[in-house]
């Protein structure tokens, strides 16, 4: 395949990945890695390097919008970043020592899990009851705007959330994805933070987490300019457009369609991983 054709195919794929990824909250990596490996026959280590770049691009792009609205809890983000950056570097360091087949299988399983999380009905467990001493000491409790008024919330089980972030960071560094589904579990279910705060804060953290592992990939030569260029441009345009569309529509139907697509990709990755073809 010529460089020109490759660039065009990846550019279109990355655009779609950014568009759908930002509308469903699943991020671009879940499409970019299967596209590069299954369709274009790119080695999974290059695919991981390209994907981490797309994570930084979408995270920084949309965090810019969310942070201005005052929903993001910067303290929670900064505190949990200690866990995610350490574990993301660890994941990025060990990823080349792991058989690509196993990486593909783990990736497939994370995809299945993310698809399930995406269509499952979320239950908001947030409240303003007394939170633990640690949350008070760290001043994690915050407020966010709802329909013009300011709502308070309390943060629970800080240690549990911090531990879960370690897992999310390792997966992020290992596979080059944002692992938003795991971050949201840590924040929604364990720390019981309101949705809007957890989604935007998770997105805010993703950039720094991905930057930590991206530096490791960069040194190792996993970030190739010929792949990074169309991925960065495509994902940025796609996710910017996706965020604009999201302001006007509720993508419930799209989520179901996307969950089916992601499930199919996941099974393909697992199957090819088991067959040793990646």
């Amino acid at each position: 395949m010529s460089v020109l054709l490759f660039t065009i195919v990846v550019l279109l794929g990355a655009f779609l990945a950014g568009l759908v990824g930002s509308m469903t909250g699943l991020g671009g990596g879940v499409i970019i890695i299967p596209l590069l490996t299954l369709v274009l026959g790119v080695d999974i280590h290059y695919a991981i390097g390209a994907s981490i770049i797309s994570v930084i691009a979408t995270s920084s792009g949309s965090a810019a919008a969310y942070v201005k609205e005052g929903i993001t809890n910067i303290r929670i983000g900064m505190f949990l970043e200690i866990a995610t950056t350490i574990s993301a570097i660890f994941g990025a360091v060990i990823t080349v020592y792991i058989n690509p087949s196993y990486i593909a299988i783990v990736f497939g399983m994370i995809l299945l899990f993310s698809a399930t999380m995406m269509i499952r009905k979320k239950v908001d467990r947030s409240d303003n009851d007394t939170s633990g001493k640690l949350a008070l000491w760290l001043r994690l409790n915050g407020t966010y705007p709802v329909d013009g008024s300011i709502k308070k919330y309390a943060v629970h089980n800080v240690i549990g959330g911090f531990m879960m972030m370690f897992v999310a960071g390792i997966i992020s560094g290992l596979l080059g994805i944002g692992s938003g589904a795991l971050k949201v579990i840590a924040m929604d279910n364990i720390m019981r933070i309101p949705f809007r705060v957890s989604t935007t804060t998770s997105n805010f953290m993703m950039g720094v987490t991905a930057a930590a592992s991206a530096v490791v990939y960069f040194h190792r030569g996993q970030i190739d300019p010929g792949i990074a260029m169309p991925v960065t441009i495509g994902v940025l345009i796609g996710s910017t457009l996706g965020a604009k569309i999201l302001l006007r529509t509720k993508p419930d139907k799209l989520k179901v369609v996307f969950a089916v697509v992601v499930t199919f990709l996941a099974l393909q990755m697992i199957y090819n991983g088991m067959a040793g073809r990646l």
């Binding site: 395949m1 010529s2 460089v3 020109l4 660039t7 590069l36 190792r220 030569g221 300019p225 010929g226």
Partner: peptide, 28 residues
């Protein structure tokens, strides 16, 4: 960079089938 890269090497063939750390020579 992409425009310059495409002008100079658009007709080359891509080869990303096996990971080679030194291939791009752009990691420092």
């Amino acid at each position: 960079g992409g425009v310059i890269y495409l002008i100079s090497s658009h007709a080359n063939l891509v080869d990303y089938q096996a990971f080679d750390a030194g291939k791009s020579g752009m990691s420092s």
